[in-house]
């Protein structure tokens, strides 16, 4: 097993598995958030469930945190090794002629997502942890939607969120299908699978953008 983690292929598989887990998480996250613009009561109910269910809080949440941490640390390690592997730089490099921008700049899109995650946790997760575990406030299943809507009053925050989602699109545009190749899946279904991953890469972040804009403009 230690040999497995030491090799370049194993590192890629770790990237792929953690990435796919995050992709799955995103879908679930979007589903819950969509209820915020359809029916705030449902949003409150689901958020309350997620916030107080021990399985979610003490199993899934730590797994998610570990997934993110493993993914971005491994991402930085890989890219650092890759920069070193070139050595002397080309005077005239034609990287854009044979590979997509998204595939060549996973570190940039990833770093923006990481910065966004910092803001996102500061906005929602830290206050939530403080509310529940530090201030030990009582359970209140109606507070989630007002808290959410309040955050999106700010045009700057709304803009920053939307920008991050665009970079998330680019990250997934390459990353989602790349993960399958990394795990050795490339067969007659791969063209179709790639189409699906690219639609997912557009639709999911677009969903988050729509939610952010709806919340912002309904409170002007």
């Amino acid at each position: 097993m230690s040999g497995l983690i030491k090799s370049s292929i194993a590192r890629k598989v770790v990237m792929a598995l953690s990435g796919l887990f995050l992709v799955f998480f995103l879908g679930q996250h979007l589903f819950i958030n969509l209820t915020a613009i359809i029916d705030p009561d449902t949003f409150n109910t689901l958020s309350h469930f997620m916030g107080y269910n021990p399985l979610v809080q003490f199993i899934l949440q730590p797994v998610l945190i570990a997934g993110v941490v493993i993914h971005f640390i491994m991402g930085f390690v890989l890219e650092l090794q890759n920069k070193k592997a070139r050595g002397v730089k080309y005077a005239k490099y034609g990287g854009s002629t044979n590979a997509s921008w998204a595939s060549r700049n996973m570190l940039i899109s990833g770093a923006v997502i990481l910065a966004f995650l910092g803001l996102h946790l500061y906005d929602f997760w830290f206050p939530e942890m403080a509310y529940k575990y530090i201030e030990s406030n009582p359970e209140d299943a109606t507070r989630y939607f007002p808290e959410l809507a309040h955050k999106f009053h700010s045009p700057v925050r709304t803009g920053v969120y939307c920008l991050a989602f665009v970079l998330l699109m680019l990250h997934l545009w390459h990353g989602f299908s790349s993960a399958f190749q990394s795990m050795g899946v490339n067969n007659k279904y791969s063209t179709g699978l790639r189409k699906f991953t690219q639609i997912y890469a557009i639709v999911i972040p677009l969903g988050f953008i729509v939610i952010a804009l709806c919340l912002h403009f309904s409170h002007l």
Binding site: S8, L78, N82, K84, A85, A99, H174, Q181, S182
Partner: peptide, 10 residues
């Protein structure tokens, strides 16, 4: 000392 593949396809 070759780099890790990121499936760019170049």
């Amino acid at each position: 000392g070759f780099g890790n593949c990121t499936n760019t396809g170049a």
